[in-house]
Design a protein around this nucleic acid. Structure first.
Lengths: 347, 347
DNA sequence: TAGAATTGAGCAAACGCTTGCTCGATTGAT
DNA sequence: ATCAATCGAGCAAGCGTTTGCTCAATTCTA
């Protein structure tokens, strides 16, 4: 059987409550007693039972992670491991551990979350995506359970704590960069339209075009799955239109990988024939062929900050609801977008 | 406050114990009562408190994950997300959730594990690596706590359940493949020597050479960190020796990425000047430049099977200790190793 | 139709820990 | 030297479930 607080108490010749207070390092216990109890704990190899503790004081020291449905697919995108690193680092620093549920459908994910929350399995939740009409966020919000979103939430964003990249700005900058390189026919390939990240980046793209006096062509905007396959498919379509783009803004590195390998297969040179820029600057962006120009968004930082906010929220009962943290980004220029003047000038 | 079993009991006009038995779907409860209780649960939105349940039950429905120390670094290698996918899939199918601790030093990891185990936070543990003299495995084994190792454990492997690739065989095959391509000066770049995976692959490599009548040269064997940086450094050293190798077996795709980009930087062509093969066939192996020839080891399957074994172990009290599962692998030939006759024939 | 067997549900004692109160012993003030 | 204040530690009541027993009601047997 397990060694319980009673065993320790007996061994140290005190009451269980005293042991408990020693663990909590309560000032009500004398130094002498504390030492005696501590050495008993040591000697017996005592470790508190987490469930008993959580039950008694209604706090687990853990954080729930919500992945997009089909988490299992998602894990293939290096974004998630990286954000996980950030989360895990901060969580660990503060003595929290991580609790993951995965589900393949939206319903499964939601019920997983409900279980975490109602079952008091976690103290707070981090939602690793932001999707329109998302049940999870709705639920979390209405139950007033501590949570933070990675990405910009929909609806009444002002009341939700979130950490995000300024994707709108990033989209604008990237597009402008291509414009400055001489490109005039610039396309956009995004992931699911329901995702905030796609919308923001696309809007930034459109704004940049408008600022440059270039009309936004619907047929230059493609959407696809967030993986290489999606990118491959999308770019194929784009290049079949009459006046094919000379540059393309891709909303995600993995998609961009798909884009560039497809272009190579089609016999097109990057960046000479088509320039490519994308977002996230995941680990492998630098190792693709050619290396990807990509927006470094500090994914680790997103995770880290999100966890930070969550822990704040859990701690203070005074809810600093509606806090928002924007993690800075910057463009990392590599070969895939070409040099100045390398693009085909307009008309 | 939370809705408890008592609330449900009151609402359905039964005793708490009855509610509990309804949840467990005990045959001792009549169909009628079950339905009544169930609809009460539904109506009140009842969800059992996990901690109370675990406390009473002595079972959590969760699995502990042990990452190598510096987990946070490790997460950069796509191996882990992928194995996580496998684990998560199987775990989810069986109603288990995942519990992660991370630590940066070995001691931290160990104490995390002890906490999980002694604190009865998980029902079993999956160790995601295998290292010589590993305290975690020692501990787990001596406490007789259910666990399985991904990778081949050291010491008395026969008493430990594990799932693994036949890395020895894979190492042999890969080396032989290079030999058949005409290479005679074949080097090996491995990760930490303490890791079973490195040792096995290296031994396979050495065996293949010996079988081919080629002496194993110590200066052809390099070790490095398990990431691109490591690969880069190692290959630079290898190419500085007098008779540089014409082919190199790299123990990990990420290292191989480092290798090939370093080679490119040095102005060497792959596979013409140096052929490269590696292991794991992670998602991006196919997207590197040139695409990597790599051994597909079914990482997902490793995770899945490991979870499967663990759940078996948790379930049956009859311990099927010492089970071992070998997940099959196969070589995926891409450009990085070149075609037949492309290598430089010996002498 | 009486008594035995069976069925369905409740009682209450755990599970291991926390925490508001209580209370004796020490210390300090007068 | 007396009484109040202070300090250190223990008592016991939870926290929300599970589960071995008990027991009343029902069904069956003879």
């Amino acid at each position: 059987m397990q060694i319980t607080i009673k065993d320790v108490a007996k061994h140290a010749n005190v009451a269980p409550s005293t042991v408990s207070r020693v663990i909590a390092n309560s000032p009500r216990i004398s130094q002498k007693t504390k030492e005696r109890v501590r050495s008993s704990m040591e000697e017996l190899g005592y470790h508190p039972n987490i469930h008993a503790r959580s039950l008694a004081n209604r706090s687990t020291q853990s954080i729930g992670l919500v992945m997009p449905s089909a988490a299992t697919k998602t894990l293939q995108n290096p974004f998630f491991p990286e954000v996980l690193r950030g989360i895990s680092t901060k969580a660990h620093q503060n003595g929290y551990s991580l609790y993951m549920t995965t589900g393949v459908t939206e319903e499964e994910v939601l019920s997983g979350v409900i279980e975490m929350v109602q079952g008091r399995r976690v103290d707070g939740v981090i939602v690793l995506y932001s999707r329109e009409d998302d049940k999870v966020v709705q639920y979390l919000r209405q139950t007033k359970f501590p949570f933070v979103v990675v990405g910009k939430p929909f609806g009444d964003a002002s009341s939700i704590t979130y950490v995000d990249t300024d994707n709108y700005l990033a989209g604008r900058e990237v597009t402008k960069h291509l414009y400055n390189l001489g490109h005039r026919r610039i396309a956009f390939i995004g992931g699911s339209d329901k995702l905030a990240v796609t919308q923001d980046r696309r809007n930034g793209y459109a704004t940049a075009l408008m600022e440059a006096g270039i009309p936004v062509r619907e047929d230059y905007i493609a959407r696809a799955e967030f993986m290489t396959k999606g990118g491959a498919k999308a770019v194929r379509e784009l290049l079949h239109i009459e006046e094919p783009p000379t540059a393309v803004v891709v909303s995600d590195d993995m998609m961009a990988l798909g884009v560039i390998s497809t272009l190579s297969e089609m016999g097109l040179k990057i960046p000479e024939d088509v320039a490519v820029v994308s977002f996230n600057n995941v680990y492998i962006a630098e190792h693709s062929n050619p290396p990807l120009t990509s927006v470094e968004i500090n994914i680790f930082g997103l995770g880290f900050e999100a966890t930070n906010c969550l822990i704040e929220q859990i701690g203070d009962s005074a809810p600093p609801y509606g806090k928002r943290v924007i993690v800075p980004h910057y463009l990392v220029v590599r070969q895939s977008c070409g040099q100045k003047n390398a693009g085909q000038p307009a008309e």
